[in-house]
Design a protein around this nucleic acid. Sequence first.
DNA 1: TATTTATATTGCAATATTACGATTAAAGAA
DNA 2: TTCTTTAATCGTAATATTGCAATATAAATA
Lengths: 110, 110
Amino acid sequence: MGLSKTEIFTADQNAMARYAKVMGHPARIAILQYLFEMNSCICGDIVNEIGLAQPTISQHLKELKSVGLIKGNIEGTSVCYCIDKDEWSKMKVVLTTFLNQDLDEANCGC
Amino acid sequence: MGLSKTEIFTADQNAMARYAKVMGHPARIAILQYLFEMNSCICGDIVNEIGLAQPTISQHLKELKSVGLIKGNIEGTSVCYCIDKDEWSKMKVVLTTFLNQDLDEANCGC
DNA sequence: TATTTATATTGCAATATTACGATTAAAGAA
DNA sequence: TTCTTTAATCGTAATATTGCAATATAAATA
């Protein structure tokens, strides 16, 4: 179907999956890394940095924006993109809590 | 195209995206949580716990196995699935390093 | 051996994702 | 106003994902 059955999962599970999913593409990882590295963050620079066409980058930026991880400010004809620190912090809490689950508790006979 | 251009990204970027992608579905999050909670981890139990058909769960388990996050041991007619602690630790390092990037360094004028 | 039980695989339909050329929109420059 | 620049949107092709019914497989049991 291509359609996830989100209804049967908890809000937490869906939120975690949503964050993870948006990070589940190397171009979006690369974009986020670039935004962390650079203080200037013009969309055109991202297009030049990463070897993908402008509409493709624009689409990835849209997805990052849809979960709130980045925000864009119009500056004349160009757009300056930045990490949204509040949302990044939220994601960090959600994902690290999951990643830091105690492995010693996960013991089965296998 | 539906096909990611992995060639133009670094091994690290692709590895991160691969981990994130596999966690990018609530059913797989739910499965991992269940494997953490329970010490017994029979496939059939997972099917009962999560409201998805058996073939669907089997498919999700396959994807989790493909990145090495879980391993399955045959026990008679059933299969016992467990978290692979080594791989989980690897993922934890890769993702938390990314998540813990210094937000104060990411400053633009926006 | 035949039957049951538990899981994997196959095949398929519906939808989503990735990528890009072409076009559009909006702001600045000539 | 016209031209240029920059980024978003549209349209489309190729591929991937999600989900399940039906079937296959493999081990245990009767």
